[in-house]
């Protein structure tokens, strides 16, 4: 998406807002915003909650054909080019990052999207999680990889 000093074009704005609201509603409807649901899925030895599998299944049912259809397009409908993630190789950073993320996700049952939607619950612990998440993102770039 190309942003200019004139700001974001109105049509792009509609897509961003629609996508954000749809994403927030989807996390709410599916209850993925509730850490107890996520921990129930990760609880492989006890009573198991399969919700997360069906959420991913529902999302991929739409997203797989959508992303594959996009291969036929030269550029996005409103943008100049697809911002394709550049890295192709499996490296140590990918694995170590996924492990660290997995430990944090497994401890609290919260990942970035749901943490933002869960701010609506007005619980200080969610606010703390989000502040720590932002600090972690900054810490990686400013300290670990500099």
């Amino acid at each position: 998406m190309e942003s200019t000093d004139k700001g974001i074009p109105f049509s792009n704005l509609i897509i961003i807002i629609a996508s954000g609201i749809l994403f927030g509603l989807g996390l709410s409807v599916s209850e993925m915003v509730n850490p107890a649901r996520v921990l129930g899925f990760l609880n492989i030895l006890g009573p198991w909650d399969p919700t997360l599998i069906f959420v991913m299944g529902g999302a991929l049912t739409v997203a797989v054909p959508g992303f594959q259809y996009a291969r036929l397009m030269h550029k996005p409908v409103l943008g100049m080019s697809f911002s394709m993630p550049g890295k192709k190789d499996l490296d140590k950073k990918l694995i170590l990052g996924a492990v660290l993320f997995g430990i944090g996700w497994g401890l609290a049952g919260i990942c970035p999207g749901p943490s933002l939607v869960a701010l609506n619950a007005f619980d200080g612990r969610i606010v703390l999680f989000v502040v720590a998440l932002l600090a972690g993102l900054l810490f990686h770039d400013k300290v670990l990889s500099s």
Binding site: F129, V130, A132, L133, G136, F139
Partner: peptide, 15 residues
Amino acid sequence: YLVAGLLVGVGTRMG
């Protein structure tokens, strides 16, 4: 939630 948030932040950025 403090520890989990930090790990999720560092891990998702690294990965």
